[in-house]
Write a protein that binds this DNA or RNA. Structure first.
Lengths: 215, 215
DNA sequence: ACCTGAACACCGTTCAAGT
DNA sequence: ACCTGAACACCGTTCAAGT
């Protein structure tokens, strides 16, 4: 538990490494300067010399993870499929780093995070025939949807027992009107399936006729 | 700043009231037991007697706000319009209580929050011809989209200057390929417009042909 | 039943002092 | 240039003691 005994000289790199370890295990909230110092076997104040303060330490951590994310390649035959595949790939990247989204979110770095995917997305939207402001809207709609979805999803995992619970409503009410619906809402939510489904719907809507379904 | 001097007897109600005030002004993070005690003119420990601890105090606050939200009435002629209007109404409710979503989110209460809207939503989806599992999926897709969108949106307001900034990419790259797109991505994001647009697209997609755009 | 102060175990951060 | 301990200003929470 106490980290390396062979402490020669503290290093910004070692601080980041140890900090990353703590975050990976128990999330950013568990990263305290004092625990980190204990882990490294140094005085708390040494850390400040190397990384400034807790906030910029977390900044550096996020920056580093973002840089390591790896590029996204669209898959599928139709433009709609390829756009949706970019969204799914991004979601999987985020799920590989469970604490990343929350940290990115808190720091207002979602644009930064989305930047590589944006390039790819624009290419596919062009292929689908979207140009100019409409393409920009589509990019942003997909971006917000992905980030928002993963945010909600991740959170649902941490608080798995949704208090009251959806079923409560459907036990008493309207269950006879549509029993299949009632049953479906009782079943636990399959996040992956819901994501795929909603992205497909969103993309279909975005690529559809310009006015949407006005009438 | 120091609250009522006419302190006779502390009351759970007064504690909640004062706590709500602090949260409304500076967000839940600013609500500390000690500041709250100062505001109320009592010892910190008195608060514990009335509300248990900080966590259950915040629980009570959320519960109370949720109960006061008021019902949602769908507007519009077509089912698609009416479903979208429910989403927009929910968004506005959330925006009226700027700290609510984050708190609901942290507590795993999004289902609870969505419950009244769910009833309305199901009715409209039925009217649109969706039944059973497909209707359940649509409900959940809309729910996650709304919560996610507002979460992202709210956050963007707190950290307004998105570091690097989207435009960086489009200054150097591909700007000549689609200058209108580049310009659009440089403009600040209009959250209301994007929400309306993406909800319309999502709903259109959800109400569309069952298979989505497979081929 | 309600309120109190003292105390505990934590935080992040600063600063003067060491080598 | 790098590391240290002491100290400051905060936290949430518990507990024995008061009325």
């Amino acid at each position: 538990m106490k980290g390396k005994e062979t402490r020669t000289r503290l290093d910004r790199e070692q601080v980041l490494e140890a900090a990353a370890g703590l975050v990976k295990q128990h999330g950013p909230r568990a990263l305290t300067m004092r625990k980190l110092a204990a882990e490294l076997g140094t005085a708390v104040t040494s850390i400040y010399w190397h990384v400034g303060n807790r906030e910029s330490l977390l900044d550096a951590l996020v920056e580093r993870t973002l840089a390591d994310l790896g590029e996204i390649r669209p898959r599928g035959r139709t433009p709609a499929q390829r756009v949706a595949s970019v969204a799914r790939a991004l979601r999987h990247q985020l799920r590989d780093h469970p604490h990343l989204i929350a940290m990115v979110h808190e720091r207002g770095l979602t644009d930064r995070m989305f930047l590589p995917a944006q390039r790819v997305l624009v290419r596919e939207l062009h292929a689908a025939g979207l140009r100019g402001a409409r393409a920009a809207d589509a990019v942003r709609a997909v971006q917000v949807h992905v980030v928002g979805h993963v945010l909600v999803e991740r959170n649902r995992e941490r608080a798995p027992a949704q208090r009251p619970g959806e079923h409560r409503l459907w036990d008493a009410h309207g269950a006879d009107a549509d029993p299949a619906l009632a049953r479906a809402l009782t079943r636990p939510l399959d996040a992956e399936r819901l994501f795929t489904l909603s992205v497909r719907a969103l993309v279909a809507g975005l690529l559809g006729p310009p006015g949407g379904s006005r009438t």
